[in-house]
Structure formats: C-alpha cells, structure tokens
Design a protein around this nucleic acid. Structure first.
Lengths: 138, 138
DNA sequence: ACAAAGTGTTAGGCATGCCTTACAATATAA
DNA sequence: TTATATTGTAAGGCATGCCTAACACTTTGT
C-alpha cells in the first residue's frame, strides 16, 4: 500500500495543497491545518508521510510544494471531486454546499466508470435542460 | 457518538445480519465472519459492541437476531444501498457487480437529499427509458 | 460418550488518523 | 535586537477496525 494507493486522508491533504497552488497561496503547515481544521501536530505527521512518498517537497518553516507526481495525484482527486460536485448540482439539483460536502467524501471511493457516466450525464443535461424534469413530476 | 451514530463498520455488520434474516438464515458469528470475509475474532468484538448498543441480541453459540432498533437501522442502511445500486445500474448503466461494490461503500456517507433525488431519477428513467441515451450520443 | 469439527474469546499486534500538551525553532514587527 | 507571534514537532493518548495465535467451549456424528 506504500507506493501506489493513497489513503483518503492523504488524498485530502494533497488536494488541499493543490487548491492552494491554484489560488497562488504560499502554503505552510499551519495554514494547511487551518484550511483542513486539523491540529498542526496531525498535519506535521501527514506532511512527513507525503514527503516520504515523494508527493510533496517541504522543509520546516518553508512553503509546501507538490512534486510532479504529487500534482498528478492531486489532479486526479480534484477532478473526481468536481465531476461529483457538478453532477450533484446540475443533474440532481442539490445545493452547492451539500454537493461539495458529498463530493469530498465520495471522491475517495467511487469507481472510474461511475465518474465517466456521471460526467456524460452532466454534460447531456447541460445541453438538454428539459431532461431535468424528473424532479418535478413523475 | 455512542447512542446515535453507527460507524460504517458497524453498519456493515447490521446490514449483513439483516440480509441473513431476509434469507431466513440462522446466522452465528462464524457465519457472519464468512459472509463478510473477516476473522471470527473481529466479528466477536463487533458483536459485543452491537449488543452493548442494543442493536442485536446474541449469546455465544446462539443465533444473532436484530432488536427492533437494530432492524430499524438495518432497513435504513439497506435501503440506501438499494437506492444507490439501482441508480448506478438503471440510470448510469453500470454493471451489477460494480453497482453493488460502489453502493456498499457510498451508502455510509451519502446524504439523504442525494438519495431522494437519485430515487426520483431512477424511477423516471424506468418510465422513460429513452432518457438514457445520454450515454450513447451527446 | 467421546473425538472431531465448529464456534467464540482473549491477548497482543498493526495501521490510520486524530487529539492535547509542552516545548523548540523561526519569523516578524517594534 | 529583542519580544511576540507563528510555526513545527515529539510524546503520549484515544478510537476504529483489522489481524494471528492460542486456547476454551459447544455441537455433532459415530
């Protein structure tokens, strides 16, 4: 389980780091702790693991950076997240907050096939909005 | 977290016990261990917790039975499971195995609103099968 | 009734992942 | 430059949930 699969916990860290990079934020451990609402101690442990797995670069008091490998992983997770969120919002008409919350959890466990189908259905519903009447009548 | 919320692990046990009851199977700990592919020792621990929380009745070497409370919980989980599985199969056209596998995991974390919407969309698609063309063309 | 098969439990471990406390190191602002 | 704020980490805990090994108990078949 060391080389390939990331636990859902580590995926969350990687994703948060990636989002910080997207926002061009200089992220340190303490900031990550604040973002994730987790203790600095826990973040410290997690960062060590991520460094060990060569997914991030990080030295004490420095800025956290994704390695190319880490970025690859981050993009995977983040895109799962977005596929789910869009699907919940656009197809199932769920509120943004709830879509976000569910996406965050489900992203770690859902299969690729299901994501692919969701993506297709989302884009279909965007083009054919009349298809979303399921929710109103029978 | 004691009185109300079940961990996803315990939900799995409860669900497996419920399914055994549906099949009119006399279930003991060892059988449950086989069903879930888990050691007898782990099952033994879990059953103690479930007895403690008054979700099952169980004595060593006896048959495991759900209490009314346990049955209530089981039905909740099981119906989530089925809503997800049906949705994946009927709306997203995923294979039964994959639908099952994903349902098993997601049932523990998905919100009620999303389940409700999935249910509606599933029944809509059953009545209007032409709606599932999203998967073929644009 | 007694051996074999099946079942249950305890003890000791491992992994994940979170916490608080206490302290150490660095950065920053006066 | 020195005090304050920020950041990092080590130690010791807790909870979940899984494992194996070893042992104990019950059931079953002959």
């Amino acid at each position: 389980m060391n080389s390939k699969n990331l636990s859902s916990g580590l995926e969350d860290y990687i994703e948060a780091i990636y989002i910080a990079e997207l926002n061009k934020t200089q992220l340190k451990g303490a900031g990550l702790a604040r973002n994730l609402n987790i203790s600095r101690a826990s973040v410290s442990e997690a960062l060590s693991k991520l460094v060990e797995r060569k997914l991030i670069e990080y030295k004490s008091y420095g800025i956290i950076t994704l390695t190319p490998l880490g970025k690859e992983e981050a993009i995977k997770v983040y895109s799962k997240h977005n596929i789910l969120k869009d699907f919940f919002e656009i197809v199932l008409l769920v509120s943004p907050d709830e879509a976000e919350e569910n996406g965050c959890k489900i992203e770690h466990i859902v299969s690729q096939t299901i994501l692919d189908r969701m993506m297709r259905l989302t884009s279909y519903c965007k083009k054919h909005p009349e298809c979303i009447k399921f929710n109103i009548n029978d």
